[in-house]
Every structure is written in C-alpha cells, then in structure tokens.
Design a binder for these strands. Structure first.
Lengths: 385, 385
DNA sequence: AAGTCATGGAGAAACGTATCTTCAGCCCCG
DNA sequence: CGGGGCTGAAGATACGTTTCTCCATGACTT
C-alpha cells in the first residue's frame, strides 16, 4: 500500500460503515488535496475562482458538512456562548420567570445568532462537569453573585465573561447594567412631584445587584430628604410572599401614600392590597412598579412602570462579549481594554469596564393626580444616547 | 531528543505560552501514562483505587479541565441538544413569547441538564452555517412545519429529532404532543353542559399542528352536533390582531354565547370585548381560553383555562430524545424502535412513535352558570396515566 | 515446573479539521 | 541566462482526547 493510497482512502483495515462525507472524501472526489478543499470552502489561501467553485460544487454534491468538533479543536473557537442564569430557591431556573429575563435572553440569543454564535443555557449552580463538558468561547452571566466561584474560574481560565448587572466582587471582562440608582431617584422624584409625602418600597431579600443598588438608592434618598424609610422585603422568587408583603406594607401604622415595587408582580399585588384596604389609586395611593409586562397598561387604573429595556441590555451584553472574544489574543487576556472606548480604560488591575444604560419610566394613571393621560417621560435629557 | 522526552514535554520547538493544563501534563506530573489518567478520571480501565485517587488529586491540583472539543471529536458525543423554535413573522423568536414555550423550554433545559446535556437555542430558519457550526447529539423541534427542510436533513444525517407537536410530513425519531383533539372536544362538551347553544372559536391563521388540530376538532364537532361554525382567525403572533379578532367575533350577527380562544392573550381580549359590548360573563357569554398564565385566576371574573402542561411536555421530549441518543447505535439509526414500549413499535417505515399527553382544564367562573367555585376537572377518566 | 490467568499499565492509532511550510513551475528583469 | 518573486497547490503536523491492543509481572493451578 502506498502512502498516496493511504491518504486518499480512509481506514483501510476497518470495514467502512455508512458515514458522513469528510473533507478527505471531498478532496478525493474533486481531485485535489484537503488543503485545497479547506481553503476553497473557507475562502482562504490563493486559489483561482475556478478551483474554488468546483470544490464547492463537489462538497455540495456529497452533502459535506464540516465537523464542528474538529474545527473547534483545531481553531480553539466553538462559536458557543454560555448564558448563565442565577437560580433562586429550588427551581433550576428563574429564566423566563420574570419577563425581564425572558426578554433579555431572547434579545441575547438573537444578537448572538446574528454574529454567528449560538447560546447555551447553563445554570450557574450546576456541577462542574456540565460546564467543562461544553467548549465555550465566552459567557454571559446574568446578575452574578458576589464572589461567584464559577465566574472566577471562568475568568481565570481565560474565558471572557460579560455580566448583566454590575458584578460585586468577581472579576469579569466587562459588564452592563441599568442605571438603577438614577432610575430609583427618578421615580422617587416623580412621586414627590405628584404629591407623595411618604414613599414606601417593596423590595427583595436577596443580595443581587439590582435589589441592593435599588434599595440603597432608596435609603440614601430617604436619608437626604429626611423621610423615615418605609419598606418591606420578601424573597423575590416566591410570588405568594410578594402578595403578603404588599399587604403588610399597606397595613403598617405609618402607611405610605406612594409605593414603588421592585418586582414585576408587585403592581398587581399592591393594587389588590389597596383595594382590600379601600385605598383609591392614585387618589390615596400612588403606585409604580418595575415591569416589562404591558398588562399594566390595562389594569384599573393603569399602573406606571419602570422598564429596564431588557432587549437593549441583552444585545449590548452579547456584542460586548463577542467583541472581547474576537478581539483579544486568547491566551494573554490582558489587552481587552483596547476594545473599549478610551473613557472605559482603566489602568492596571482596576475595575473592569462597565456601561450604565438608562431606563425608561412609562408614566400611567397610577402615579399622577392631575392629568391621567398616558405619557412617556425620558429619564435622561435628550441629546444623550 | 528521545521519544520519551517528546512524549512528556509538549511542542519542544514552540515557545510555550501560558496554557491550560492538558492530560499530558497531568500524566507527567503523576508519573503515569495518559491512558492511565484518562481511565482514572473517567472511571474506566482496571486501576487500583490508590492510583485512581492519586491521579485525580494531581489533576485537581493542576486545575485540569478536559477539552470538550477533543472529547467530542473522539467520542462523537457533544452533550449538546438543539432546541429549535419556529419563528413567526419578523421577530427571530416567539420563544418566551407565549408562556407555553417559556415553560416548556425551561422544563426541557432542566431535564437535559439533569441527564448531563446542555441545550443550545437555535432558530429553525437560521442559515445552514449556524447549524453545522455546532455539534449536536440530537434536536428538539417545537412545532415543526410541514416538510421542514432542516428537520429532514438532520434526520437524514443521523441526528435524532424529537418534536413537540405531531409532525406533519417530516420524518422524526419520535414526537410528543398534547391530545389537542380530546382537549377541544372536552371544552366544547363542558361549555355545552354549562348551557352554551352556539360556541365560537378564536383561532390562528398559521398552519402549525396545534392550530390545525384544534380547529379541525372544532369543525368536526360542529359538523357532528349540527352547529354552524362561528370562528375568527388571526395571525397568532400579532397581539393587536388578537384584540381585533376578539372584537370581530363578538360583533357578528350570529354572535356566539360561548367562546374558546386558542391563544394565551385571548382571554383578556375577549373579556375586554365583552365588556365593550355590555355582555356579562358568564351570564351572557361563557369563556374559556388556552393559557399557562395564572393571571386568569385573578381576572373579574376568573377565566377557565386549558393548560397544555408544558413542563411535562418539555421533560418528556428531552427524555425521549436522550433515550434515542444513548440507546441507538449511531450509524445505522434503524433500531430506535426498541427504545419504546411495544405498543409504539411500527413495522418498517411506518410513522414514527408518538405519545399523546392529556391536557388539564382548570374550570373557573367564566364557564359556569351554576356554581362559581373553582374546581379542577380531569380531562381523562381516572386510572389512566 | 510450566502453563494460565488476573492485574496494572503503557503505546499508539485514530477523530477531522486548519494551517504552516514547502515546492514546482513560470514569468520577468537585469 | 540565472535568480527572484508570484501562483497554485500539496505535505505534514498539531489540536487533546479516548480506546484498542498489547505486554510485563506475579500468583495460582495441575
């Protein structure tokens, strides 16, 4: 047997099963080398158009599909991005539990696909073997916990990590977050202008960035304006607890005359609680909640909501991540900074570059005592994008 | 340079960059061969426990993570399952648009993870290169279109395909679906018993299995009981169109006295339309809609809903798929049938094995004229699982 | 005492691609 | 007329595993 025969034929000793055509088969059928096939199909190398198209035609005829595994092994790129969702409680996924996550994930998937990447859904808490069983080019982390060991290890092993939500204490390549502080202050100001004297907060007990920043902003504001904080916290993943907390908040002796609820179902719960206590909205109680759902446009009365613009966040996160994947010399992992505009550059081992995005307050009848017309107020002065 | 040196050291000529430890590094550090390392870590081969634990310890110390790409290339298994979602209209994903999809996807992800697989979200309509860029062990297809070219090619190339929704005309390994016909007939019967004389249907214009089967069941029932069909169809992906269609249905001269809406938001839309026309529910109009949302427990009045039990479907689909992946001798692809109970076996090239799962009708005030208590009626006689 | 067998482990061949290097031919120019 | 650069393409290697085959060693049987 000659070397040439061994090169063109495959596995001379084994009985040949029905298999998918490989690059060698295409090369043999087209009468060229596998190098030429690879170059022709990938648009590389120096080949005349004639050869290129002929090879492509042969490949098409044979139904050739390159092996993703082999390509990944060779190039070190899998085209796969992890989408990590934090898990509350027993349920493996809050993913799609709140409309925010669902929308964000959808936008992220779409954006990734548009750039040739696919998303793999992985829980942050799963065992190591699941994570190491899939070759990831990078990972999106939604709301990373402080000191998340998984994120740390990923980052250390050179996998770019971009988080939705400013990371507490774990190193990430970059992060994107809503400007929660500005959003809360904007809402408090909005309620004050509508006549609120004592603004209450319905918040969560978990330590994620969103809850923490929002609550801190509220407490800071209270401190500044001299209002005693009036708030109830409950485990956000438990819908029943939310209704109870809403009830508790309105049952307090120092009952607030305006409430902002941090989580999606709070609007409904607060409305129901107000009804139980005979409080008219917005006359006796001003209401705002954070939600992506448009059911609040149809409630009685319609409720003012804060939208975190999850689509925009998801798209931004993915694009940032893919920029890092494609721009960085994988191996060193240090010159990521040059991907970002100068204003983000931080010297040495400073904090990772982050982007704050504005939120949108959709003002409806529940937070206005004068004109119940539905309007949209931009949270930022125009001119800024 | 000896062969041994070449074996233990790596790439003697290239300058060594900072890289992740490979299996060779572990072997060298532990003073054994790479075979032994592989066997020790994978629980294979014949090794004394002492060696096994020592190797494991060394691997741990070096932070060794096996390369998923290399493993996939070698074993032919990636541990990745595609989750295909059909796309309506311009938006790339209805995924998470309806609660059904969201819940189903969540359950599927969870079930897959529980068996060591991860899910990759892929749109059915995306370009070929995205699909062939990821090595899939199998695919879940949600509501496959008739003659879906992608499904056909996947199946032909030996990738197991399990669909949620009985496939129209494309070959799949197996499928799972709700018993839509039984569900619709059950609802119609339920409405009749509640006193309905003319039952209307709010349905969709698309040709997916769900819409088709449900509509056909309705039309067949009308034909059998001698009622003139009263229905409106609209593009299900357009929420605004749903409200219009609901309005149209109640504005007809032959206005129905009971309506079943096939899609999630129909309940709200129909309720709003009824209110506009001054129709009291359930006194003058009986209402049922298909939805996974529990908001219908809180509407005024609460609306009877049909649940398609998406969790159960998602779990079943994934388990069926993984059974096929792990049970079949990849290469032949013919003896899949033995995975299923005998009753599913079909001779030769007959239809693929399928499973019909019962739905659940959650009866609330909107479909009862007598006792407005909330009860749950099983759609199947007890004893069947 | 010579086979036989179980034990523990090493060698080497794939898996299918991308890419680095090499090489033959050819044209052009001094 | 000889060498340098350009074109088109082939060879060979490496990516990091898994796994098939095989060998050495000692214990045990007959």
């Amino acid at each position: 047997m000659t070397a040439a025969a061994n090169q063109s034929g495959r596995r001379p000793t084994t009985s040949r099963r029905l298999e998918r055509a490989g690059i060698r088969d295409v090369a043999a059928a087209a009468g060229v080398s596998i190098t030429t096939v690879s170059d022709a199909l990938n648009g590389k190398g120096r080949l005349p158009d004639e050869t290129r198209s002929r090879v492509r035609e042969v490949a098409e005829r044979l139904g050739y599909r390159p092996s993703a595994a082999a390509r990944t092994l060779r190039t070190g790129r899998s085209g796969l991005i992890g989408l990590t969702v934090t898990t509350y409680g027993e349920e493996p996924f809050t993913f799609t539990e709140f409309a925010y996550f669902a929308e964000m994930a959808r936008a992220a998937t779409s954006a990734a696909l548009g750039r040739g990447y696919a998303l793999v859904v992985l829980p942050a808490s799963s065992r190591h073997d699941v994570w190491s069983n899939v070759a990831l080019d990078g990972t999106v982390v939604i709301d990373p916990a402080d000191q998340d060991p998984l994120v740390s290890e990923l980052y250390r092993s050179g996998v770019p990590v971009v988080s939705d939500g400013k990371p507490g204490n774990c190193p990430v390549t970059a992060w994107v977050d809503n400007d929660h502080e500005a959003a809360v202050l904007n809402i408090l100001e909005h309620l004050s202008e509508a006549g609120a004297r004592r603004i209450g907060l319905l918040t969560g007990t978990s330590t994620d960035t969103y809850t923490r920043l929002s609550t801190d902003a509220y407490l800071g504001w209270c401190d500044r304006v001299g209002q005693e904080p009036v708030y109830e916290a409950y485990p956000a993943h438990d819908p029943a607890a939310g209704a109870v907390a809403a009830d508790r908040l309105l049952a307090r002796p120092d009952r607030p005359d305006a409430v902002y609820g941090l989580f999606d179902p709070n609007g409904t719960d607060l409305l129901a609680a107000a009804r139980r206590y005979g409080l008219r909205v917005p006359e006796e109680l001003l209401l705002v909640c954070c939600s992506e759902s448009d059911v609040y446009a149809g409630t009685e009365p319609p409720i003012t909501t804060l939208s975190l613009k999850p689509r925009r966040i998801g798209t931004t996160v993915v694009n940032l991540l893919i920029d890092a994947i494609e721009g960085v010399d994988s191996g060193t992992g240090v010159d990521i900074a040059r991907l970002f505009p100068p204003r983000y550059r931080t010297a040495g081992t400073g904090p990772p570059p982050g982007t704050l995005m504005p939120t949108e307050l959709i003002v409806r009848a529940s937070s206005q005592r004068r004109s119940p017309r539905t309007t949209v107020s931009p949270p930022r002065p125009p001119g800024e994008v």
